[in-house]
Design a protein around this nucleic acid. Sequence first.
DNA 1: GACGTTTTTCATCATGTGTTGAATTGTGCG
DNA 2: CGCACAATTCAACACATGATGAAAAACGTC
Lengths: 178, 178
Amino acid sequence: MLTAARASFAEKGFRGTTIRAVAASASVDPALVHHYFGTKDDLFVAALEIPVDPRAVLAPVVAAGPDGAGERLLRTFLSVWDDPEIQVRLLAVVRSVLNEDGGRLLKDGFIPVVVGPVLAQLVKDRPEVRVPLVASQIVGLIVTRYVVALPPMAQMPAEDVVARVGPVLQHYLTGDLA
Amino acid sequence: MLTAARASFAEKGFRGTTIRAVAASASVDPALVHHYFGTKDDLFVAALEIPVDPRAVLAPVVAAGPDGAGERLLRTFLSVWDDPEIQVRLLAVVRSVLNEDGGRLLKDGFIPVVVGPVLAQLVKDRPEVRVPLVASQIVGLIVTRYVVALPPMAQMPAEDVVARVGPVLQHYLTGDLA
DNA sequence: GACGTTTTTCATCATGTGTTGAATTGTGCG
DNA sequence: CGCACAATTCAACACATGATGAAAAACGTC
């Protein structure tokens, strides 16, 4: 039942999933889901239960210093996103964050308060321009590999991705800026 | 009236815009919009009228050969997206394509039949892996700079973006692959 | 078997939406 | 003016959705 909600949220986004559809997918009555989890927002947060703390996961990456940080960062990133259990939750969050008002949450919340400071520890030189560059490449990876699942990107083995875009992240982190 | 529709589609996506909201924003009756443009889908296509032919715009870029193609590609890309008239239309398309079923349209339509062949002219060596890499970086740019308008990325002058991301695209197009 | 609790279903309300057709107003023309 | 025609508004239908509360079924315990 929660898994049905997760799948629908991940595939259709928040507004795209109806309580009735979730109930049907779990072959129960729509009122039942409302009995266990209250409102639709409650169901959303109940189904998502963010399973990872980005700061904790990223800690070893920054602790090892700037050398090879691009590949390490990418490897841990992919290890999290390639886990199906986690992926469906993160996809639901991303799908719902890409819509209208959700952008603010990402723009004013996630990026500046969690990923910003973490990466800022890693890059001392002009982080205000390097961090967005890293973010742009990672967001592109998320969208192409997971959200729309572009064929060549979605099937590419994680290690190939690391080998091919890792150097780019490294360049954004420590390379020459024009 | 069409501009109101465009703005709403660009900001809230297709499902997020209601005909009533568009009508209110244009201070007319909801039935009026339905009188001029028929159904909601008709309004969508009427408001969007894709103003650029990607193949025509990209033609000079590929004609000049692979040298410096990354920067040229990025420059023309930004010149199109930074035009407000065009941006609002493209944003509407992107916002509506990022949702559920729309992904297929991008996955099975746009990428393989228009941007794929064009870039394939530019890169002869393993295009099936280089094109997705280029796509991932460009998509990341679109999302961070235009969809969520991440502060440092959205305000960055176009030439700075070209100078910083151009080399990466060039690397994806012609550089060493791991 | 009887009772109390939990689980599940039924019917229903309130709201927002796309859509439609009739009615009303405005406008130009002879 | 009067009249055809377009522009615009009104009222309403049909439908989907989130939410609610009462009724019914299932279940365990004594």
